[in-house]
């Protein structure tokens, strides 16, 4: 069983360049491996895949004489320490990394496409795309001319710090760049996993309903910025902007909130300002 994604296949997580026939692995080792690499061998999943699942007894009798061993270890400690390593490496290289999370279809990729097109050379923008399968999003980003790599998580429901490390190693973003990381579309699991990013952004679109912050409180409590997208559709849907803002602030009182339409461009300057492109 795979440690990171829970899939039954050791090749579950793949880091791929768009536009490369096959899985693109021939490119993933071309770049110089620098400081990030010193963790890679620790992450070599030691899990075997040969266990037959024969159905062990559900709970064996507990012998009378047992020995207590204190463990006292946080379960996310390994991910968190990898995330801190990423954070340090990114800071050393002057790279700002933004982790974008949302449900599928809220407009993350469209927001990235527009952002890259309008960045106007102010800062190099690179993208790491996370999805369970396909290179669809990476192909869209590639069409904008930005450097991009796709992380396919297989059965996995979120990116973790080691996947980001692998993505960064393969992509080799230049010093001083803005690295936009599009997490797997999912309002539950990605909230728990620190990647080492500079900021977490949650995108919600008005077609999803204003009740999402309270329905998915862990995600919205983790957000540094909430982007409310597709406001051009407000006349056609029952979306209470004030309620959405109020509920989001009940989970994180100091959260920044930007309302915009990627399609029309309304309100988008506030987003550019927030990510330092203005």
């Amino acid at each position: 069983m795979c440690v990171t994604c829970g899939c039954g296949d050791s090749a579950g997580v793949r880091v791929r360049f768009p536009g490369v026939p096959g899985d693109g692995h021939q490119h993933s080792h071309e770049h110089p491996h620098d400081q990030l690499h010193d963790h890679s061998h620790e992450q070599d999943p030691s899990h075997g895949h040969d266990h037959p699942h024969t159905g062990e007894p559900r709970s064996q009798p507990i012998p009378a004489a047992t020995r207590t061993i204190d463990i006292e270890q946080e379960l996310l400690a390994k991910n968190d320490s990898l995330a801190e390593h990423n954070r340090g490496w990114l800071a050393e290289h002057g790279i700002t990394a933004i982790n974008l999370m949302s449900s599928p279809g809220s407009g993350k990729t469209s927001l990235l496409e527009r952002t890259i097109r309008e960045a106007g050379g102010k800062r190099t923008v690179c993208v790491i795309e996370g999805d369970q399968e396909t290179l669809f999003d990476a192909e869209r980003i590639r069409a904008t001319g930005a450097a991009v790599i796709q992380v396919n998580t297989g059965a996995g429901c979120h990116l973790d710090a080691d996947m980001l490390r692998r993505g960064i190693e393969a992509l080799a973003p230049p010093d001083g760049s803005l690295l936009l990381v599009e997490n797997v579309g999912n309002l539950v699991c990605p909230a728990l996993f620190d990647l080492g990013e500079s900021a977490k952004v949650v995108v919600i679109s008005v077609t999803e309903g204003a009740d999402k912050p309270l329905k998915y409180p862990h995600m919205f409590a983790a957000a540094d910025l909430i982007v409310i997208n597709k406001i051009d559709l407000l006349p056609y849907v029952d979306f209470d902007l004030d309620r959405c803002r109020r509920d989001a602030r009940s989970l994180r009182p100091d959260v920044d909130i930007v309302s915009l339409s990627v399609k029309s461009g309304a309100g988008i300057d506030a987003w550019y300002e927030w990510i330092g492109l203005k």
Binding site: G6, Q60, P63, I69, C189
Partner: peptide, 24 residues
């Protein structure tokens, strides 16, 4: 779904400390 990776961490964290000893 993320419980699966969390549970795998439980097993990793424990076996790092206890090796092959049977855990009750």
């Amino acid at each position: 779904m993320h419980e699966l990776s969390i549970t795998q961490s439980v097993i990793d964290v424990v076996t790092e400390r206890t090796g092959g000893d049977r855990v009750a």
